[in-house]
Write a protein that binds this DNA or RNA. Sequence first.
DNA 1: CCACCGATTGCT
DNA 2: GCAATCGGTGGT
Length: 217
Amino acid sequence: MRLLADRRRAATQDETESLGRPLPRDFYDRPATVVARALLGRVLVRDATEGRVAGLIVEVEAYRGAADPASHAYRGPTRRNAVMFGAAGHAYVYFTYGMHHCLNLVTGREGVASAVLVRALEPRIGIDSMRRRRGVETLERLARGPGCVAQALGLDLADNGLDVTRPPLWVSDRLPERSGPIAASTRIGIRVATERPWRFFLRGSRFVSGPGGGLRR
DNA sequence: CCACCGATTGCT
DNA sequence: GCAATCGGTGGT
């Protein structure tokens, strides 16, 4: 009789096979806007002890280096944003408003401090896990909004700095067929008048981009 | 040490 | 429209 752990491992390998391979580091080693666009429609995968959770990336926001006033990196390196200044292909997870976490994927060359904020997912795998973590039922509400994405995936500061070119947190190189309409978040996040982060999302089957954020004060 | 603020969310 | 809630950040 096969051990439970072995069966679980085999199942994980099968699913990984069907999901494709993790995107390699050089995928992320490009400008944030380019990576942001290329991430749309791919599968973000989170493997935890509770099981696998995954969804299609349907909305992202690009933070373009330390010269971008909207970026956490704008005032130079600090303890919190250190990961942004590091190598591409790592997770920058931060805590905000005393209750929410948000997930970024670091892009560009070391020292460039650019990243892509994952703003919304279309749930695909581990939907019941997402429901438990989120405390909501409907697919539309499970991972719409950056705080909801992190909560649905069970991410917190312990995941800051993770290498996203391999499990337990990674993005597949596959571009699956989308099953239905995709809900992008409606709320506006950053409020910087001079320069705004560029947002990318999928509306139905169409690719859309435009300035995110509103005006400050 | 202290004060202010935030790449948000959910409820009124 | 606004409260919740607390670590990050910068100034004293």
